[in-house]
Each structure stands twice: as C-alpha cells, then as structure tokens.
Design a protein around this nucleic acid. Structure first.
Lengths: 345, 345
DNA sequence: TATACTTAGTAAAACGTTTTAATAATTTAA
DNA sequence: TTAAATTATTAAAACGTTTTACTAAGTATA
C-alpha cells in the first residue's frame, strides 16, 4: 500500500513497519551491505523502505552536517547560443557525479548575481559554477571572496579573474583570434577587417588582441569595423563602410561570434556582395546552425560542452579537497574550414 | 568584522552579538517592521544581522515546515533550440516569484526523469515543471501521480496528458499546422508537401494532422515527405524525391521545426533549387536564427518564453492552493511571413 | 566458573531554526 | 493600593535525521 495522504513517510514510519528502531533503519540505509545486522533485519528494513517509498529528507541530513547534493550555476543568459551548451555540459557532468544543479540566469546584472549567490549560501549548496558579469567589477571579486571565505568552492567559466584564488575554465581567446587571422592570411588575404561590437567584453577583446597581433606579425594593417549590438542596421552600415572605400577588405573576421557573422552574410547579400566570392567572412563559436546555413560558416569551434563538463569536474575536486594544480584551465579550440572563407590571390 | 573562519553565522551568534535571545532575532527577522519589540532592540538585531551577514539556513527552516523556495524543472534537452527559451521564461518568472529553479536535463530518458523526480522529492521542492518524455508512457503517468499524491504541485509544459489531474501549458499544434497550410494554399500553392521526421512525437503529429485536414478541406492531396533525423543526407534524399517526380511540390511545410526547414533550404541549394522562386519552404518555431538567414524563414512563431513563464505562474497558483480553472492552457501562435515562402499562380 | 570479547540492536543527543506559551516588567483601571 | 491589562522578551519544544555511546545477550578464552 502506497501512502496516499499527501505526506511523505519518515524514518519512524519505516522503523515502525519493520519493527526496529530508527537508528537501525538509518544505519542499514547508509550501508545496505553492512554486516552489523542480521540478514533478516536487513531484509525487513529494506522492504519497509520500498513499501513506503521512503527517501530521507535532505534537509534533515543537512542538519547533521551532510552537504546538499546541489551545485549552483550562474550564467548570464540562455538566449545567447553559447550558454545552453555550456550549461548542458555542466549539468550532465554534475548529475554523473551525484549532484543536481540550481540554475540562475543573471542577465548580466551584478545585483541579480549577488542575490542568487545569497540564496545559494542559504540553501547550503556544495559548490558554485560562476559565469558572472563580464567586466571584473569590484563587487564580482567580493562575491567570489565571500563564497570562498565561507568555504564554498567556486569555479569560474569563460571569465578570467586573477585575484581571488579560484580556478577558471575557458579558451585561450587570444591564441584563437591569432590563429584564425593567420589562417585567413595564409589563404592569400591582405586586407582583413575585424568585425566587432562596440560593447566589447573581456574575452572578445582578447580575440581582438589576437587579430591585431597576427596582422602586425605579417606586416598588415588591422582595420576595425565596429557596430552596435541590438541596433538594427548597424552591421549593414559597418559593412557598407568597409566595402565602399577604395581599399576594400577581402575578408572579415567576426570576433563577436557566429551570429554576427551570419547577420553580416545577410547584409552582404543585400549589398549584392557574394560570400565568399567577393568577400570572405569568418565567425567564432561554431554554433549548431553554422554548419547548416548557406554558405556554411568557417569558424573557430569552442568546446562549449567540454567547458561546462570540465568546470564541473574541477569543482568536484575542490569539493573533495583535492589539489587543483592549475589556476587556469584552457581548453583547445579548433579551426573549422567551411564555405564562407575563400582562398584568393 | 566579517567572519573569516569558513563557517556561517548562526542565529545564536546574532543573538549573542545583539545581546538578546535567538527567539527575538527570529521574530524580528520574520517581520522587521513589527511593533512587538522596542526600536532599540530592532536596531541592535538588524545591525548584528548585517555585521555577521546572517541569513537563516534554509534546511533548518524546512524542518519547521517551511517549503523550500525551489522549483524543479525537467526538460528533455538544452540543445534543441526550443527549450532554452522556455527554460528562460520559466526561471525568470520563478525568480520574480521568489523561487530558484533546479534544472534537470533528461535527454528524453524516462529513467533519468524518474531519478530526478526522486531527488526533487527528497529535497522537498515546492513544485515541479515537467516537460517529460514525449510519448505518454505509463511510467510517466505514474511519476506525475506520485508527485500529486505527495501533495507536490505539477505543471506540464508542451506535453498533453489527460489522466492525472495536472494542468498543461502549450500550443494548439493542430490549429497551427492547419493555419500555416491554409496560408500557403492562399498564396496559390496546390502541391504542398509536408516535410516530417519519421521519429514523430505527439505534438508534431498534431501539426501533421492540421496539415492533412487543411489540405482535405481545400480538396488537395496531402503529400508526406519523410526523413530520418540524425541521418546524414536524409533530407536531401527526401527533397530529391518530391522534386524529381512529374508532380513536383511547389511548397514544403517543415512541421518538425525551423532547423529542418533551414537544412532543407541548404539541400535545395545543392540541387540548384532556388528558394523561394522554385520552391517555397515554411518552418515551425521561429528560432532566433530564422530571421537572420538568407532567405529568412516564413514560419509559425511559438511563444516559447511565454510558455515557460505561464507554466510557472500556473504552478504558483497551484502552490498557493488557488483554483486553476483550465486544465489546458493554449497560448496563441503567430504566422510570421518572411522570404522563404512565395506567392505563385 | 569467571572474564573478555562479539554480535545485534537501541536510546538519546545533536544539528539550526521557528513558535508557543510563559515570564517579568510596566502601565492602566478600579 | 491592588488587580488587571499591556508590553517586551525569552525558555523550551519541535521538526527528521545521523551518530555515538551504550546495553544485553551470546560466545569464546583462560
């Protein structure tokens, strides 16, 4: 008979049904293969547990010092195509390690981040994965410090931050930017523009630095082609500008991500520019759609799933008190050659 | 002085610092604007709370019967573009209502769903949002029943299920399928194919039914154009087939979603079919990318964010014990006319 | 036979909060 | 002046588990 009265069975219910003390139930549940109790007692208890569908209340276990099998994950958004995959990698790994994930979407607001962290502390989460506001605001550092001071392990995703002693998993965005630029140069391009949003964030500015350095290293003149995110027609104008002048670019590197690149391809088509025959366009991230669209996108593949999974693994090490030797874990990127970038010359 | 010893302040610490009993602290924290205590006591306590950064441990509150301010959300995947947005709507609304969200990704496995639900029961979540396995398996029904029997409110997202008394938020997929088909007919098309995956799920088969009925209502012959998901080249072959015969389709309705439609456009380009001049292609969902690609996609817009937000609002009503009059909440869809579908004839 | 050791199981305290019922101090009413 | 009412505060029980230290009974050892 399953209980149907709307209340969960307690350990005392199990004890009563099995005819033993609750201490016995607790011990047997802790280690069902123990040899402290007779086989008969073990069997009685286990079958009572099953019959009542008993699972110990987590909050009572927490009271006795057990940590909550829950990890907090702070992400700036699920709309940006990058994060769902990171989140997926993180939660999958967490589940494999026996944790659940409390998911918090900050919309890049430090206040919301603040309040989520507070809630997580109250709940007593076992650890926190933090992909916080992008600019290393003082308050961000304070938050991380607070968690660490409370003994709550923290790992950061895709965001570097030296000061508080807290590992970080991400990509070497500088090298990735450098790599892609060099690839385009090797394909014969000389006049290569860098399509970048004005609202540039730390990791994207790293890519930009990579682009600049690569251009310089090959004796080429960098050309920044800036636009405003969320401003309709801004990419169109930016593209028109670098296309109208006498020293037209032959390639554009959209360091802001594949979405920017795809939008740029669309603008190109409006301007009767054929990609890649008239103009090559490269992206960054390798989102799912990049392979499907026409022309398919040449891009840098970020190991999004792996970033999440690795971060969770590092967090687990921190929770277990194991040494985490590296402060910064940089995962490898991959150059994906597709149709949107052509060789010239 | 902030505590730096790695332990959280307890209510007794606050009481000691403020020179009052812990009962006093608890009462003042419960209602800071009370008039049970002197202004002086109120001030002392509040400043001690601030100084020690005290927040009551949730687990101890749970012990006293307070429900955990956490909602469980079960989603089959974050990779499918549909769910991140639904999740976003759900969590945003949850946060506004004072809840956090435990996020669980089942990968369409009923076993994982089962185990997540168990964990959520142990944790004592205040409610569950369930977008479970698609086929109404008996075990799925059992799961929902179990939650309900324990007094844990459940709302279902994008999945109909009559039997257990549990509200559901979604779209009228039949009407949406009918509507799009009729639109295409009104644009002069007569030979309209329905591009559908073999692995058809409940909600998609509803759209298919809508397509069939609309065709029948206009005296037209439905033509199913099936392909295998995750099988490379399957859409290509399906398209080739309906294009080679003497009674070529002039339009295709990809009921499986925009991704299928976009992939189909790519295949069309390989076959030298110009979309929309030779062939019109319509999608379903209206994912972010659909507006950006070339040609942009004519599609049915699902209120993804709203589905999540509405589900959470319904769940809140259930938690509060308010009456939820409707069993099935169907949100409006929207026909989005873009470039991939042309008028003919 | 007395002693030590095992074995099988349990009583009770502890965890950090909330809340009820009580106390002590003060004011008001009679 | 005393009783009653009000105000300000607190003691202690309760929530559901885990765990430590204990008991009682049986078994081996000297």
């Amino acid at each position: 008979m399953v209980k149907r009265n709307g209340t969960r069975a307690k350990i005392t219910d199990v004890a009563k049904l099995a005819g033993v003390s609750m201490a016995t139930v607790s011990c047997i549940l802790k280690d069902p293969d123990n040899n402290r109790f007779s086989d008969e007692t073990n069997k009685k208890v286990l079958s009572a547990v099953k019959e009542l569908n008993f699972r110990p209340a987590t909050f009572a276990q927490q009271m006795k010092g057990k940590t909550l099998p829950v990890i907090g994950l702070v992400i700036p958004s699920l709309m940006n195509h990058f994060y769902p995959e990171v989140t997926s990698g993180f939660t999958d790994q967490a589940n494999k390690l026996g944790y659940n994930v409390i998911f918090a979407n900050t919309d890049n607001s430090i206040e919301r981040e603040q309040s989520f962290i507070d809630t997580m502390i109250s709940l007593g989460v076992a650890g926190v994965g933090l992909c916080g506001v992008d600019l290393p605001d003082e308050r961000e550092k304070e938050l991380v410090k607070r968690l660490i001071n409370l003994g709550i392990p923290v790992v950061r995703l895709d965001r570097y931050l030296e000061e508080p002693d807290c590992p970080c998993v991400g990509l070497d965005n500088f090298r990735a930017g450098y790599f892609m630029t060099e690839k385009i140069i090797q394909l014969g391009h000389r006049n290569i523009g860098c399509l970048a949003p004005y609202e540039i964030v730390q990791i994207v500015s790293e890519r930009c630095r990579g682009y600049m350095e690569a251009m310089k290293a090959h004796g080429l003149l960098p050309k920044l082609c800036k636009f405003h995110r969320n401003e309709f027609g801004s990419i169109y104008k930016a593209l028109e500008e670098v296309w109208t002048g006498e020293d037209r670019v032959s390639a554009l590197f959209a360091i802001g991500g594949d979405i920017d690149a795809i939008e740029c391809i669309k603008c190109a088509s409006r301007l009767n520019i054929q990609v890649p025959f008239d103009l090559s366009i490269a992206g960054f991230d390798d989102i799912y759609i990049s392979e499907i669209i026409n022309p398919s996108l040449t891009t840098i593949k970020q190991p999004k799933f792996e970033i999440g999974a690795t971060a969770m693994r590092i967090l687990k090490s921190l929770i277990d008190g194991d040494d985490v030797e590296e402060e910064m874990i940089l995962l490898p990127f991959e150059y994906i050659a597709r149709e949107s970038v052509n060789a010239i010359g």
